[in-house]
């Protein structure tokens, strides 16, 4: 059997909000080390990869590896009912046909039980090599969300360029052009809620990406105050948000290239 209890149920709520518009159905792959999920959007342009390590749960039991296939939109509707301080317990039988989600309020005064039908999803798992990226930008997640939203007014493509001076986001369209430049900056008083912008640069990078997908990724903003954007020329970019201290959610996006 599989059973896992997450004391911070709102993490699961934020994860579902982050992926439900990008991916419709996905497998939660459960093993003794934790839960992982990998899925592409329907156009195969982007990929989401989630990791929740077993040690981040206060109870985790997985007798044998199982894949629990779920419709993420249905799951997000159920998980929206999680109170912010509720704990969430996920359970599944050995074949993953039926999944139970149980929400408990902090004082134990309210318990709700939900059951979702598991789906048989035949998904291709891609092998993502571990890569040393040429440029790694860490910045406030809310700032990244705002830049994606603001530049979408002008065009559908953003050119992200890193140099030792900083990082620029530029877009152009029929209306005109827009460019936002960020310089490296220190965090304000080491306040985790006001992180600065930092750039680890091996080599400068300049690549084009579809703003539509980057905007989907920024639905993960409530998960963390910072986001990390890793890029090398000619390969997909990675946008990573930590999931508490138990894992991460990574979004990979294929670049736009000159025809």
């Amino acid at each position: 059997m599989f059973e896992a209890r997450l004391p911070q149920g709102d993490l699961l709520k934020k994860i579902l909000e982050a992926v439900k518009d990008l991916v419709t159905d996905a497998n939660f792959d459960c093993s003794s080390t934790g839960i992982s999920l990998q899925a592409m959007d329907s156009s195969h342009v982007s990929l989401v990869s989630l990791l929740m390590r077993a040690d981040g749960f206060d109870h985790f039991r997985c007798d044998r590896n199982i894949s629990i296939g779920l419709n993420l939109l249905a799951m997000s509707k159920v998980v929206r009912c999680v109170g912010n301080n509720d704990a969430v317990t996920m359970k599944a039988d050995d074949n993953g046909d039926l999944v139970t989600l149980m929400f408990e309020s902090q004082d134990g005064s309210k318990v709700s039980d939900w059951q979702l039908r598991g789906l048989d999803i035949d998904s291709e798992r891609l092998g993502i090599p571990s890569t040393d990226y040429s440029s790694v930008v860490t910045m406030p997640s809310a700032e990244f969300a705002r830049i994606c939203r603001d530049l979408s007014v002008i065009g559908d493509t953003v050119v992200i360029t890193t140099t030792k001076e900083g990082v620029t986001f530029a877009s152009k369209g029929e209306l005109g052009t827009g460019k936002i430049a960020l310089r490296q900056s220190a965090a304000i008083d080491d306040d985790a809620d006001s992180p600065g912008v930092s750039i680890e640069l091996q080599e400068p990078v300049s690549q084009s990406f579809a703003l539509r997908y980057l905007s989907f990724f920024t639905k993960a903003t409530p998960l963390a105050p910072t986001v990390t954007i890793s890029m090398s020329n000619g390969v997909p970019l990675v946008v990573e948000y930590p999931v508490g201290d138990m894992g991460h959610i990574r979004f990979y996006l294929a670049p736009k290239v000159e025809d």
Partner: peptide, 14 residues
């Protein structure tokens, strides 16, 4: 013109 590449063209199936 720029064209959108596909993510599975970069990463082979595991």
């Amino acid at each position: 013109a720029k064209v959108q590449t596909k993510i599975d063209a970069f990463y082979l199936g595991a």
